[in-house]
C-alpha cells in the first residue's frame, strides 16, 4: 500500500466548557475521540454523520484550523500537528479547504481577483505579479467562472457561482488535498449537480484527493471512494462505498440509510420513536449509540466496542457486527 496522503493516529479534540466560578468540576466536551483514518492519494474519502458527530472538527483538525488535544496527524508521511507556523507554511499550499456557506466564506469587500490572489501572495510570496494574474485566470477558466468576474464583488453572484469562486480559491495554490465541508448543502438542488460534477472533473484533471464532509448519504454513494460514518466523535463504520451501501454492518449506518427519503416512497409509513443523543459532556461508558440501538444489550452499555475489521473489508465498532 502506498503512503497515505493524510493519516490521523488517535486524534482527540476536547473543548473545555465554561464553568461556574464556584463549581469544582470542569466539564469537557469530547468533539473527537481517538480517530484513526488514512486517506489514500487520489481518493474521495467521505465523512458522514449527523450534527455534532465531529465530522467538521475532524476536517478542521486535519487542515490545521483546530489543533488536536492528543494524537498525531501526518501529511505525506510527515508529522504536521506540532509544526511551527514557518515550517508548516509550505505544506498549507498543498492542503486547502472549501466551506459550506459561500455567503460567509468569501470576504464581501474583496473582489474575486483579490480573493484568489491572496493565497498565492501569502503562501508563495516569491511569485511575480504577472504569474499571479495568469494563475488566477487559469483557475477561473477551469472552474467554469467567466474572466469578467475578476473585478466583481461576492454580492453580485448567486450561491452556485460563489461556491465556484470558493473552489477556485482553494485551487490557486495547486494543492494535492482538499477538505470540502458540506460544499453543496447551502445550494439549490439544480445547482448541487453542477458543483458535484465540477469537483469530479477537477479531480480527474488534477489528481486531487478529497476529504468530503457531508450529512447526505445519497451524495456519498455517488461520489465517494471510501466512507467513514461518525457518531458522537467516533468512527462507527469505515468501508469502501460499495461495501457500505450494499451491506451496512453498523446499526447506526443502517439507521442513516433507512432515513433517506426515497423516490419510490413507502419508507415513512411506519412511525419512528424519537431518538435521543446522549449528553456529549457526560458520555455513558459503553457504546455511544446504545441508547438508540434496537440491538443493544447489557454488554453494549458497559463496554465500548472498538473498531475491528470484518471479513468483507469493512471496519466496524459494534459488538454484534459480523
Amino acid at each position: 500500500m502506498t503512503t497515505p496522503i493524510v493519516e490521523t493516529k488517535g486524534i482527540e479534540v476536547r473543548f473545555p466548557l465554561p464553568t461556574h466560578f464556584l463549581s469544582r468540576d470542569k466539564p469537557v466536551l469530547h468533539a473527537l475521540n481517538t480517530v484513526d483514518i488514512a486517506i489514500q492519494p487520489g481518493e474521495t474519502f467521505c465523512v458522514v454523520g449527523e450534527s455534532g458527530c465531529g465530522k467538521t472538527t475532524l476536517g478542521r483538525a486535519i487542515i490545521g484550523l483546530q489543533p488536536p488535544t492528543a494524537g498525531e496527524i501526518y501529511f505525506n508521511g510527515q508529522r504536521i500537528d506540532q509544526m511551527d507556523e514557518a515550517t508548516r507554511k509550505p505544506i498549507r499550499r498543498d492542503m486547502q479547504m472549501v466551506f459550506q456557506n459561500p455567503y460567509a466564506s468569501l470576504n464581501p469587500r474583496r473582489n474575486v481577483f483579490e480573493t484568489l490572489a491572496e493565497p498565492i501572495r501569502h503562501l508563495m510570496p516569491e511569485t511575480p505579479a504577472s504569474e499571479v494574474r495568469e494563475t488566477v485566470e487559469n483557475v477561473l477558466a477551469v472552474t467554469g467562472c467567466d474572466p469578467s468576474w475578476q473585478r466583481k464583488l461576492p454580492h453580485e453572484f448567486s450561491g452556485g457561482q460563489r461556491q465556484r469562486i470558493a473552489i477556485a480559491r482553494a485551487l490557486v495554490t495547486n494543492p494535492a488535498f482538499i477538505v470540502a465541508d458540506e460544499p453543496i448543502s447551502a445550494l439549490d438542488v439544480s445547482i448541487q449537480a453542477q458543483i458535484l460534477n465540477l469537483m469530479t472533473d477537477l479531480q480527474s484533471k488534477w489528481g486531487l484527493t478529497y476529504l468530503f464532509i457531508t450529512h447526505d448519504l445519497s451524495v456519498v454513494e455517488h461520489f465517494g471512494t471510501r466512507v467513514a460514518v461518525m457518531y458522537l466523535g467516533r468512527v462507527m463504520e469505515l468501508a469502501k462505498t460499495e461495501t457500505l451501501f450494499d451491506a451496512p454492518k453498523h446499526p447506526y449506518t443502517q439507521l442513516l440509510l433507512d432515513a433517506i427519503p426515497k423516490l419510490e416512497g413507502g419508507s415513512f409509513d411506519t412511525p419512528r420513536e424519537p431518538g435521543e443523543l446522549p449528553d456529549p459532556v457526560n458520555m455513558p461508558p459503553g457504546c455511544p449509540f446504545a441508547p438508540r440501538c434496537a440491538m443493544a444489550e447489557a454488554r453494549c452499555r458497559a463496554e465500548r466496542p472498538e473498531l475491528r475489521p470484518l471479513s468483507n473489508g469493512a471496519r466496524v465498532a459494534c459488538h454484534f457486527a459480523e
Binding site: S190, T200, E221, H222, F223, E242, K262, L263
Partner: peptide, 23 residues
C-alpha cells in the same frame, strides 16, 4: 431535470445530469 440531477438516479461514479445556469 430536477429528478435526473438527483445522485440516486444515476449509477455510482457516473456524471450527474445538470441543468445549466440558475433560476
Amino acid at each position: 431535470g430536477l429528478l435526473k440531477a438527483l445522485p440516486q438516479k444515476v449509477g455510482r461514479g457516473a456524471r450527474l445530469y445538470q441543468i445549466p445556469g440558475s433560476m
